[in-house]
């Protein structure tokens, strides 16, 4: 997969924006039955979604041919200097991670609705993959090698959604907690410096 920043189009940014907005809206509705703190999580999610889309658009615009030339050799008055500062903050902060956490927390603050949650997971995965494609200027074909893993992951998500519909017992709930904790340890191990 070879990045070709010169050929970047606004399409991927649009996809990222739509998926981010869809994830926030899907996790938020209905707000009436949500627990306390849902409104705060919604605000955080909306803010992170906007910032994430703005960041992606900024990164793509800065890599457009001629963008560097427009920047070079300019004497900056205080106003554009502050704008550059804002831009550096916008591009440095992990807005996508913030959106991920805020959306999942917002969903957790609602009453249990397994299939709704699983679908939110699918939208979130789509958002992350679209963001990845937009940043790397690659086409959807770049995801082909990962297709088996994505399908397997979606299958597991479906199983989890189905498991949530089973009648809960106290023993089952404990087993689930231990399994999830073990999986968290595995993920943490994978995330250690490589």
């Amino acid at each position: 997969m070879t990045p070709t920043p010169a050929g970047r189009q606004p399409g991927p940014v649009l996809a990222v924006a739509l998926l981010a907005a869809g994830a926030v809206a899907w996790a938020a509705v209905p707000m009436s039955g949500a627990r306390a703190g849902a409104r705060l999580a919604l605000v955080a999610a909306a803010w992170c979604a906007v910032a994430s889309v703005a960041r992606t658009a900024t990164v793509i615009a800065s890599e457009r041919p001629g963008a560097a030339r427009r920047r070079a050799g300019r004497y900056l008055s205080p106003d554009p200097g502050a704008r550059l500062e804002l831009r550096s903050v916008l591009t440095a902060a992990p807005w996508a991670q913030g959106l991920t956490v805020a959306v999942v927390v917002l969903e957790a603050l609602h009453r249990p609705r397994p299939w709704h949650t699983v679908l939110l997971g699918v939208v979130m995965l789509g958002y992350l993959l679209a963001l990845h494609l937009a940043e790397s200027a690659a086409g959807p074909a770049a995801l082909r090698p990962q297709l088996p893993l994505i399908i397997a992951g979606l299958g597991l998500a479906g199983l989890a959604g189905g498991a949530a519909l089973l009648p809960a017992t106290s023993a089952g709930a404990g087993w689930l907690s231990v399994t999830a904790a073990l999986a968290a340890v595995i993920v943490a191990g994978l995330a250690l410096p490589v």
Partner: peptide, 12 residues
């Protein structure tokens, strides 16, 4: 204790 959230994590 809601397994559907483990489902969200599974593809990742």
């Amino acid at each position: 204790s809601r397994p559907e959230f483990a489902g969200i994590a599974a593809p990742a």
